[in-house]
Design a protein around this nucleic acid. Sequence first.
DNA 1: GTATAGGGGAACGTACGATTCCGTTCTACG
DNA 2: CGTAGAACGGAATCGTACGTTCCCCTATAC
Lengths: 207, 207
Amino acid sequence: MSGRKAQAARNDELILRAARAVFTADPGAPIAAVAERAGVGISALYRRYPSKEALLQKLCGDGLKLYIEITERALADDGDPWEAFAGYLRGIVDGDTSSLTIKLAGTFTPTEELGRDSARASELATEVHHRAVAAGVLRPDVTPADIALLFEQLASIKLGGEERTSELRHRYLALAMDALRVPPGHRELPSHPPTDEDLSARWRPAS
Amino acid sequence: MSGRKAQAARNDELILRAARAVFTADPGAPIAAVAERAGVGISALYRRYPSKEALLQKLCGDGLKLYIEITERALADDGDPWEAFAGYLRGIVDGDTSSLTIKLAGTFTPTEELGRDSARASELATEVHHRAVAAGVLRPDVTPADIALLFEQLASIKLGGEERTSELRHRYLALAMDALRVPPGHRELPSHPPTDEDLSARWRPAS
DNA sequence: GTATAGGGGAACGTACGATTCCGTTCTACG
DNA sequence: CGTAGAACGGAATCGTACGTTCCCCTATAC
């Protein structure tokens, strides 16, 4: 089952994957970078999306849908309340949805559907939050908005490769969770801290 | 005591202040934005700095010196060990030195002096860190590099005006401190969480 | 009154990047 | 086989944004 149709279908996925990777790494990246990363030409992109803005809207929408999906899954979790909440936090961090939504918003004019999904996502997140507070596992003086900003802070971490970045985000998520959880206490932090090499690399030009 | 000399001296300060404000808000800002913010013409800038890069190096160097100064002050603090460490953290966040150093590095080729100051800053920070650990007030499984990344996460917060941004950074610093401090425990968070308006404003274009 | 430092801001030159366009390849099908 | 056309690759085009330079004006200093 090969042929141009199959190739095209494969490119659909290839392009979206590349776009996600490129724009989460750098929201201002040129569209040519996406094409290169996907291993296709520019026209393969423009055949699918009429403009860069359209592509960004698609990515942002997908990110929002992923966010909603993860949140709904957390709401369906009937196990230990803290574990449900913690799993939710880890899921959002893994999905890198903050990079796909906030970071891309503002770089284009939002559609009406985006607004609706965003509102829905916000509702669901609030529900998850309140459950955790009601169960007495989440400190009550933080709000869902606080958690949203926490996600953004974690998304701002970019160090080394994709793998290492993910490790570090989880490390600082774990640290934050120590401050979030009731009763207070320190749990072991995952992964290992940044090395001097990690940090000093950023002083060198041409990243 | 007026005259062109005085005007020039005033402009020196005006320009540096404007540059700091503009580039911490947006490291990629055009140089014209600095001139506009300072209320001077472009040539007033170029009379003082031969290029944009030179200006950025100056800002970065100043940021590093500020960092060093704050850290040395913390080392001189002989009071309660936790309060000394906490004051240090708050000082760095207030100085916004992360924005002045890391965020600007990489946008220009670093000088040799910058490298030296950076190394010195790192040493001092490590000393502050170890003191806090030795005093038993800072959890021992976090490293100075962890703290550096924590500063960067806080610096990534930008919401509302300068004032509000500072409040929020301190709010999340306080949260992080709850996870950092030995013995574990929750302290009251400063300021108030982001409002819906705060968050939704970012979905609107033209920030 | 004149030389000159200090400045304002338009003009220049360049690089970058979204979009368009043209020629090519591979299928499907007569 | 021969040809129409979808799907591409990638060079050419067209703006625009921004660093830097230049020209001319103003207000001191002497």
